[in-house]
Amino acid sequence: MSEFTDWDILRNLLLAARWTVALSLIAFAGGTLVGLSLTFMQISGRAVLVRITRLYIELFQGTPLLMQLFLVFFGISLFGIDVSPWTAAALALTLFSSAYLTEIWRGCIESIPRGQWEASRCLGLSYFEIMRHIILPQALRVAVPPTVGFSVQIVKGTALASIIGFVELTKAGTMLNNATFEPFKVFGFVALIYFLLCYPLSVASRMLERKLHATG
């Protein structure tokens, strides 16, 4: 079984890592879209909308991501739709990340003092004008570091897509391990690649936080 050189292992893992990156990007984009709508629902102040969002967040933060993946994967096929692991993983990760992003962004918007709302109202600005010119520009600054920090969780979350059979970095690692019987090396490489993907994001998040705290 010595047809696999170290370079072969690494090359195959790197090729598979492209799918990890693609899945992360899709989950992040989808999570942003859904998360934004949920955030606006939550700060709307309408009791029903707030309650629905709270329940949504509670459900997705209180159950394992693995269960969410399984439920999406097997749930959609109940409708008679043939769902690929790729679609299921993208959808489940989108829902998962939207719950966390909503929680982060709501906190950021609520961190803007209420007095600013009241002052803007007195100056005769409409709800959308207040949002557009007063609240969002400030909230955005606060929101960037924790959002970048959460993207690390998304990248790590994509590893679970391997369990429903989507061939990304972790699945490729398992398959290469089955072919080479060198788990120490293979999973060491896998961990290293994840680290190289995640560590820059962690550092960026920390730097942004420090920078915004210093000037803000």
Partner: peptide, 23 residues
């Protein structure tokens, strides 16, 4: 801390369960 926080739990698990026996 950095190593653990920047790699997925499942990879840590596989490394410990499958990888460590070889050393």
């Amino acid at each position: 801390v950095e190593l653990i926080r920047n790699t997925p739990f499942i990879v840590q698990l596989f490394f410990i369960f499958f990888g460590l026996p070889s050393i």
